[in-house]
């Protein structure tokens, strides 16, 4: 058995089909209506937060310089692993930061999440360049642009023949940190919205105090945030198909497709997360 189809390899960006757009808008509207029906205005606000979180994650993934297997051999710029793995690493680090800061209020928790994700990517990108430059002895050079948009460094003189560039130029480093911060912010936003819902509903259903149920609410919100994070990250990865250098890469322009897909997928997954406790004790 061999490949019969596969992603169409055309030069430009294929826009979403009309059917896809209609389905995503219908899904988002239906999910918001259901959220209002189930938990009133709090549900709508929570679902809107979850959708914004999902969109931030999908958008953030496009900033992260992903090199894949070619980068491991020094034949392409970026970090030598897949999109899903990198996004998961940055997002989960952000989620830990945000969850730790949750008791300090929304703004500090979101900042904590963004700093957690950004910090992980900053350390990763720095260590990647340490290994590339001092371990493998290769300079950083982008294959997609001739000049670094931030520092103005030129690349063609340093790019080896037969490669798409190598190492991690400064613009990719910045992209990685921005992507990690956006991912951490989005993951933390989903977590906080769900935590509010569960902390309000669980004590009523089980007739216990908030303190007794805290661990269950935290765990449920956390695992749902992780699940939604991975869904959105993989949809963004499918959008990128393979490797991306960062915000200067032509593939970056594809991000509107991933944003639409992530919004619809988050809305559907989010409505199940919000409605989780509606059926407890019914059957």
């Amino acid at each position: 058995m061999s490949a019969l189809g596969g992603p169409a390899q055309t030069g430009g960006v294929q826009p979403p089909t009309a059917m896809g757009l209609v389905i995503s808008i219908v899904l988002i509207v239906v999910a918001l209506a259901l959220a209002f029906f189930l938990v009133q205005m709090a549900g709508v606000i929570a679902l809107a937060g979850i959708i914004i979180g999902g969109v931030l994650i999908a958008f953030g993934v496009h900033f992260v310089p992903v090199g894949g297997a070619p980068a491991a051999m020094g034949q392409a710029p970026g970090i030598a692993t897949g999109v899903a793995m990198l996004a998961a690493g940055a997002g989960l680090a952000g989620l830990f930061g945000g969850a730790w800061a949750a008791p300090f209020g929304l703004v500090i928790a979101l900042a904590g999440g963004a700093i957690g994700g950004g910090l992980l990517m900053a350390i990763t990108c720095t260590m990647v360049n340490v290994i590339y430059i001092f371990g493998m002895g290769i300079p950083s050079a982008s294959g997609k642009v001739d000049k670094d948009p931030i520092t103005g460094d030129t690349f063609p003189e340093y790019k080896s023949q037969g490669t798409e560039g190598h190492g991690l130029p400064f613009i990719s480093w910045v992209g990685g940190v921005v992507g990690g911060a956006l991912g951490g912010l989005g993951g933390t936003l989903i977590y906080l919205e769900l935590l509010d819902i569960y902390q309000a509903q669980l004590p009523v259903i089980l007739d216990v105090t908030v303190e007794q149920i805290a661990s269950v609410a935290v765990s449920l919100a956390g695992i749902f945030a992780v699940g939604m994070f991975l869904m959105n990250a993989v949809l963004a990865a499918y959008n990128i198909t393979g490797t991306i250098e960062g915000p200067h890469d032509p593939k970056f322009k594809r991000f509107p497709r991933a944003v639409i897909a992530a919004a619809a997928a988050s809305a559907v997954a989010g409505i199940f997360a919000i409605a989780l406790l509606e059926l407890v004790g019914v059957f």
């Binding site: 897949g82 793995m85 699940g227 990865a237 990128i240 997954a269």
Partner: peptide, 18 residues
């Protein structure tokens, strides 16, 4: 897919756990 085999496993469990 161009994204590696593990990404399929991550979306499977990510949507599955919900």
């Amino acid at each position: 897919l161009g994204t590696g085999v593990p990404s399929a496993g991550m979306i499977a469990l990510g949507s599955g756990v919900i």
